[in-house]
Write a protein that binds this DNA or RNA. Structure first.
Lengths: 211, 211
DNA sequence: CAAATTTTTGACCGATTGGACAAACGTTAG
DNA sequence: CTAACGTTTGTCCAATCGGTCAAAAATTTG
C-alpha cells in the first residue's frame, strides 16, 4: 500500500527516503526550475529509480510543494527575529548579516525561491499575500516606531526590507554573475566578507562623504 | 529556400516577422523560462503556425540567443553612460534612477536576464566574464577616482554596482512579491516613485539618524 | 520457517515536445 | 499566362516526459 501522505509519516525508512528525495530535488529544482527539472533527474540524484521515487511522492508537484513549505519557514526566520529589544541600528545590522549568511550557506534555497517568484509565484501566491505580508507589515510597524523615536532615519520601512532582501539574496541568485565580474582573484571565498563590509557601510552611512 | 541567417536580413517582410516573433518570445520566455516555454506558445503569441515560425528561426535556441544578444546592449546602456564628467553623487543618483526606470519599463527583459543567470548563465557566461567584467572594471576605476578625490565615501565600487543592480532589478524580477506585500493600496502604480525616493535616501545618507 | 507487508523495479502508456518535410498558397517578373 | 521564388501550413516523427501497474525483491511479523 502506498503512503506519501502529508501529516503522518510511518517508518524511519520512509522518513529518511523522503529526506533524501527532498535534498536531491532541491539540488535539481534550484538549478533548472520546476518545469526544467525531470523526475528522472531527481531520482538519479537521489540514487533510486523513478517508480521508487514516485512511491514516496505521488506527483512531481508534491515534492516541490513540500520543499516550498519548508523553505518559507527557514527563509523568514531571520526577519521573525527582528525584535524591538536592543538597539535598532544593531538589530538591523544583524538582520542584514544573517540574511547574507543565508545567501552564502543556502544558495539553493534562495534560487528555488527566486525561481518561483520569477515565474509569478503560481504555487505560493496565497502565502505571499497572507503570511508574508502580515509578517512584513508587523515588522514595518516596529521599524516605524524606531523612526518616530529618532533611532534611525525616517524612510519607507517596506522598501527598506525589500532592499535588504534584494542586496543579500543577490549574492545567491546572481552568484555566477558576481563571480564572473569579480574575477578569479576577488571572486573567491572572500567575496561574502567584502559584501558584508560594503552592505554595512551602505545601510548605515550611505555614500555621502564624511565632511 | 530558408533564410534565418544572422548577419544579412532580406526582405522587409522578414524583418517584420522576425521582430514579431522576438516580441512574442520575450513575452513567453520571460514568463516561463527557456525550458518552460514551447515553440507553440511563441508561435501562437506571434499569431502564426509553428512551422511558419521555424521558417524564420530554425531552432528554439536561436530565438533565445538573438534575444539575449540584443538584451545585453540595452541592459548595460545606463552603466555605459556613467561618466566622469559632472558631480559624482549626481551621476550615481541618475544611474540608480535610470536603472529603476528600466525595471519599470522593461520588466520582461529583466526577468529574461534573471532567468538566464539563475540557471547558471549557460548561454552567456563568456559575455559575463568578458564584455561585462571589462565594463564594470572600467566603471569601478572611475568610481575609485571619485573616492580618492573625496567626492563620495570610500567603499567597494564593485559591490556598490552590485547593490544598485540588485535593488533596482528587484522591482522587476520580484514584482509579484513586492505587490503582494505592499497590498492593493500601496502596491499600485506609485510603488516605483516610492522606491525611487527610498533608494535615493538609502544610497546617499544610509540609515543613521541625522543628529 | 512461512505468511503478510513494505519497498523496489522493469516495462509500458498517453501526452507533449522540438523539429522535418512536402505540398499548397501567394506574389512577383517576364 | 506562367515560371520562379518566397511564404504558410497540415502532417508526421522520434524523443522525452509524468505517471501507472504488476510483479519481483526485501523486510517484517508471527
Amino acid at each position: 500500500m502506498t503512503i506519501a501522505t502529508d501529516a503522518p509519516r510511518r517508518t524511519r525508512i520512509q522518513q529518511e527516503k523522503r529526506e533524501l528525495i527532498l535534498e536531491a530535488a532541491l539540488e535539481v529544482f534550484s538549478a533548472n526550475g520546476f518545469r526544467g527539472s525531470t523526475i528522472d533527474q531527481i531520482a538519479e540524484a537521489a540514487g533510486m529509480s523513478k517508480p521508487n521515487l514516485l512511491y514516496y511522492f505521488r506527483r512531481k508537484e508534491d515534492i516541490h510543494e513540500t520543499l516550498m513549505q519548508r523553505l518559507l519557514d527557514t527563509w523568514l526566520a531571520p526577519l521573525r527575529e527582528l525584535d524591538d529589544i536592543g538597539d535598532p541600528l544593531t538589530e538591523l545590522r544583524s538582520y542584514i548579516r544573517r540574511k547574507l549568511e543565508m545567501a552564502r550557506d543556502f544558495p539553493r534555497e534562495s534560487r528555488l525561491f527566486a525561481n518561483e517568484i520569477l515565474q509569478g509565484a503560481p504555487r505560493i501566491m496565497p502565502l505571499l499575500a497572507g503570511e508574508l505580508k502580515t509578517l512584513v507589515d508587523e515588522k514595518a510597524t516596529v521599524i516605524k516606531g524606531w523612526m518616530r523615536a529618532g533611532k534611525i532615519a525616517k524612510t519607507d520601512p517596506w522598501h527598506l526590507i525589500f532592499s535588504i532582501w534584494a542586496t543579500t539574496q543577490h549574492y545567491a541568485d546572481f552568484d555566477v554573475q558576481v563571480r564572473a565580474v569579480l574575477g578569479p582573484n576577488r571572486g573567491g571565498d572572500g567575496r561574502f566578507e567584502d559584501a558584508a563590509r560594503f552592505l554595512e557601510q551602505l545601510f548605515l552611512d550611505g555614500l555621502k562623504p564624511k565632511t
